[in-house]
Design a protein around this nucleic acid. Sequence first.
DNA 1: TTCATCCCATGACATTTGTCATGACTTAAC
DNA 2: GTTAAGTCATGACAAATGTCATGGGATGAA
Lengths: 227, 227
Amino acid sequence: MLTQSEQTKPLSTLLVEDDLHFRAGVRNLLDFYQIQNQTISVVGEANRPAMALSLAEQHTPDLMLIDMELSEGNGLTLLQQLQDSHVSSKTLVLSGHQEDSWIYKAMQAGADGYVFKSQVAEQLLDAINTIMQDRVYLPPEVATGFFRKFQKTQTALPNQMGEPCELSPREHDVLCCLVQGASNDEIAKQLYISVATVKAHITNIFLKLQVTSRTQAIVAAIKMNLV
Amino acid sequence: MLTQSEQTKPLSTLLVEDDLHFRAGVRNLLDFYQIQNQTISVVGEANRPAMALSLAEQHTPDLMLIDMELSEGNGLTLLQQLQDSHVSSKTLVLSGHQEDSWIYKAMQAGADGYVFKSQVAEQLLDAINTIMQDRVYLPPEVATGFFRKFQKTQTALPNQMGEPCELSPREHDVLCCLVQGASNDEIAKQLYISVATVKAHITNIFLKLQVTSRTQAIVAAIKMNLV
DNA sequence: TTCATCCCATGACATTTGTCATGACTTAAC
DNA sequence: GTTAAGTCATGACAAATGTCATGGGATGAA
């Protein structure tokens, strides 16, 4: 069962998990999996972030399975360190936390996928498959929640569905600075124009976006995807 | 093949598509599909938004397949009218447009799913299945794009990953007004306090969010999901 | 050419926003 | 009871933001 068809070299994975029991369970699952005619080999196991990092740099595995609830520093910091390092392994988070906030944090920290520990048996193969195709994996209900949230927040359609708020190139430049939270002074320096000019552009932006303050302009710009 | 096991009543669908050729093709596909032991029946076909709307109100179908490129008014307006009406049919958009902006617009307008016409044969069944389970369907590569975008925009982690920016209740109230684009004066009126107090709260918010202006506070609040 | 229009740029002035110092009130600790 | 810490509230003053009027170029139509 293990070495069924090894014409292609196996997918190398690194397991980061401090619960020995769970780790063994995952390793067991991996033994039975096959990703597009490719078997999976566990090239290393770590129980601490530091150890995981050094093993990752040493083996540069194709994939890392990362537990979120490590005893010493959680998986988030590890994910960020991996981002900063030159290691380009794919990362799949295994977590007991089902709250959105945890998932958001993991994704922000650069994870390629997230699977609840309670659903590892059902979803792990699918997740690995998805991730190794350069895609992002989330449990279906979580993904749906993501999109629903998007639907709720992005309510306003530009000008009752008309033209997409034709801003002049310069105005667009200014708007981009604006939504970064820049002050008139900073915008002026960045665009090499005087503060007075910045203000004039901003006033014009207000007109076109039908708002009356820079704060309203920012929320409008975000809602209308003008940035 | 059509009526294989009709113990449950078929899934009623309404087809909104002005290209006769394509419509026939889709109908043909649907005849062969089966969603969880449920066959699919097309209870109506429309080629104009107005017609679609009246048919929808008449039949209240379980699912509507909506073409984006209708000759008279596009599918977006139809989607919004459906939202406003009491019709609670699920909606799946079939579109030739593969640009993100179109997909975003469709989702904002309340679509439950989006499939490229070029991929209907491969994805339609999967999409319908997903949608009828109260989930959202997007082509895998599009969904991934969504998440990657999220990863890029939501970069700032609250306080270098510490506590989630403990705002006092009152400060939270003020922040909520702030991200709506309200002025100090408006916030004061809304919360029944003086402008001076609003300013004080805002200053404290700046401290806790580590920003120096209301515009920065807004972008920070949005990035950190504080609203 | 002349005229109209649009974008970009600027300064003077009014308004809003942000800082700082201050005080009342509540809660928990000593 | 006193002290300390935290929230909410306010006014005076400094700094920024926003409005208005104005002018120089570039483009296109009459």
